[in-house]
Nucleic acid binder design. Structure first.
Length: 335
DNA sequence: GTGCAGCCACCTATTACGTCA
DNA sequence: GGTGACGTAATAGGTGGCTGC
């Protein structure tokens, strides 16, 4: 006899977690399926992008949650968690495939006043000559900005670079050292600049915040966006590019960690479910052995009482429960 | 139409540096 | 002041898509 078990309560019996189609996490690609965490939107940033018919990236809202608590990722704590067992769609890599109008609405973002925006521009990452070169970037590079964009008028005060790192007020000593560094850098020759090009320079809090805002708009940049952003932040385009690369990597790492955690908990859930079903099966077999009367009846129906979760038998025609009252809930086990 | 080289953007792993406890 | 942990900017190597020949 073939025993068909129908598990109730979940939205979909084949999908107890409320599956919906989602982009992938690359860490799971090798497994041939992907797991979403039910953030209320898709998966992260370039690691399962959503594209429109032109192959462009559609805003991936999940990126916004990178540093935040994920309300829907819990189990029963929020929107349904999802699993997608479908093959993954290829992810375009070229930036031109993900190009879109320059999303620099962040330039007029309410946050910006808090970032110390002023008309003063001081780039300690760049010798004066280089800064001057950047200043000569033609306005054409920002041509895709809206006429109302504040890009051209917006400047940030990067003179407070490194200020208050990690929430700590910078000491006078370190401030003096930095000023000395700036003076030193301004004296550097081109050769010296090249020699120190590998030296790591921390971005200021304001620059990081600005890049973060941009990243929330788009996790990838096309060349124009990169150049415009670099110009705006007085950074080299390469620095902006590297920042976005590292940011994507951090996002992916975080997503992978969350995926692993989710899979771990899902596995635990399935293990528990399997244990319960095995128990049910044993009960059914025991019931069948103890009730030979029913064994020769055609189309005997066993029903699980939704309240006590005990298996009961119903008569073939009348569907009358033998051990407890059947509620309005649908039968859960049919034989 | 096909193959190839060059370019570009991206990913991944790693290194190196700055900051903090 | 020295030191280890941590975060992150930067680098190197590899991959894949696109383009022109």
């Amino acid at each position: 006899m073939e025993l068909g078990l129908r598990l109730g309560d979940a939205p979909n019996s084949n999908n107890p977690f409320g599956v919906r189609s989602i982009p992938s996490s690359s860490s799971l690609m090798a497994l041939g399926f992907c797991v979403g965490l039910g953030h209320g939107s898709g998966s992260g940033s370039g690691f399962g992008r959503v594209h429109d018919e032109d192959g462009r990236d559609v805003k991936d809202e999940d990126e916004d949650d990178d540093e935040k608590t994920i309300p829907g990722s819990g189990y029963g704590l929020g929107p349904p968690v999802q699993l997608d067992l479908l093959p993954l769609a290829p992810v375009p890599r070229s930036s031109h495939q993900s190009s879109s109008p320059l999303p620099f609405s962040c330039l007029s973002h309410p946050l910006m006043p808090e970032l110390g925006c002023t008309d003063k521009v001081l780039d300690v990452n760049r010798p004066p000559a280089l800064a001057a070169a950047v200043a000569m970037i033609p306005a054409e590079e920002t041509e895709d900005q809206s006429p109302n964009s504040t890009v051209t008028s917006f400047q940030m005060d990067f003179g407070v670079r490194n200020g208050g790192g990690r929430g700590r007020t910078r000491s006078k000593r370190s401030s003096d050292m930095e000023m000395e560094k700036e003076r030193s850098s301004s004296r550097m020759s081109d050769d010296e600049e090249n020699a120190s090009a590998r030296k790591k320079l921390r971005l200021s809090k304001e620059q990081s915040a600005f890049l973060e805002q941009s990243f929330k708009q788009h996790s990838t940049l096309n060349p124009k966006q990169k150049a415009a952003l670099a110009k705006q932040l007085n950074l080299r385009p390469r620095q902006v590019e590297v920042w976005f690369q590292n940011r994507r990597a951090r996002t992916k790492l975080k997503q992978t960690e969350e995926d692993c955690e989710y899979l771990k908990r899902w596995c635990e859930t399935l293990t528990e479910e399997n244990r319960r079903l095995q128990k049910e099966l044993q009960e059914l077999r025991a019931f069948k052995a103890s009730q030979p009367f029913y064994s020769h009846l055609p189309a005997t129906t066993l029903t699980m009482c939704p309240s006590c979760e005990r298996v009961v038998a119903t008569a073939p025609a009348a569907s009358i429960a033998t051990t407890c009252t059947i509620t309005a809930a649908p039968p859960r086990i049919l034989i």
